[in-house]
Design a protein around this nucleic acid. Structure first.
Lengths: 150, 150
DNA sequence: TATTGTTATACTCTATAACTATA
DNA sequence: TATAGTTATAGAGTATAACAATA
């Protein structure tokens, strides 16, 4: 690696891209494996449910915009989530064209369960590291976060 | 955060999962945006091409197994790649049921181009960081790599 | 008979276009 | 007229089942 690469981060870019992509894929897989009890939610359904759980209440249009899907696609996602009693639809208080979506208790439980399951694997792996290695990752996390902004 | 969480990495698991997943998604998106010159390869097509570029020569069955798709799906992927002259099919030397796939020069160029494009974005972002931040990431990369093993 | 690859067909997910109800 | 949501329909991607060629 040349000094200029060292400074600009070209060599670092290669190793970081590989390690980040691999770990992310591993985390994604880890979400799917267990948990055959609950309905098999698709990525979009799970993401929409998690967004709703975080934001509290949104209209279908807002949710579609947030999840970067078109409104008709969100209609189908909501229909599935509503059928499984994970979200609830209520009339908008002032505008009768709109619909207000909220997460049910069951939906909230499912979001938490999936979140815990995803993190359980990673937490186990982190516990196997040395304290110094964990400190390095703790310092790196906000920098990684900053990289993905903008 | 409690001391035990600090030691086991449960709190760290949350922040690290979020930052790694976000950055990986950002890197994936970065593959799509520019490059309107070449054919728009799907994720699976690009992954199959990259695997073939790395391994040199495989049969459709081996490639399907490696990419975790069923053989009929791989048949269609190969058909598209062959139509764009990115891979070449040759008869197997001894078993006439089998087919041997190799990457063409054009396919190899495309793999390299996409790989460079993905890294260019990250290298630009890394160059905006302070030397200390880059040093932290350089230390973190092998630890992230270790986490994704096993 | 078993195996490799392909063709036929169906399902899931998402998109665009057209429609309904309301503002 | 414009907007929110839905319904109708089409396209991309992948799966299983059935088939042809070869071992």
């Amino acid at each position: 690696m040349t000094p200029s690469q060292h400074n600009s981060g070209a060599g670092l870019a290669t190793t970081l891209r590989i390690s980040v992509s691999r770990l992310a894929r591993r985390l994604r897989v880890e979400r799917l494996e267990p948990g055959l009890a609950e309905p098999a939610l698709s990525d979009t359904q799970l993401a929409a449910l998690a967004t709703l759980e975080r934001h509290g209440a949104m209209t279908p249009g807002e949710l579609a915009e947030h999840e970067k899907v078109q409104p008709p696609s969100m209609t189908r996602v909501i229909a599935a989530l509503a059928e499984w009693q994970l979200v609830r639809r209520a009339p908008h208080p002032s505008d009768r064209r709109q619909v207000v979506l909220t997460v049910t208790d069951g939906g909230r439980d499912l979001v938490h369960k999936v979140r815990r399951r995803r993190e359980a694997w990673l937490a186990r792996k982190l516990a196997e590291l040395s304290p110094e290695e964990r400190a390095t990752l703790r310092a790196a996390a906000p920098i990684l976060e900053k990289l993905s902004q903008s």
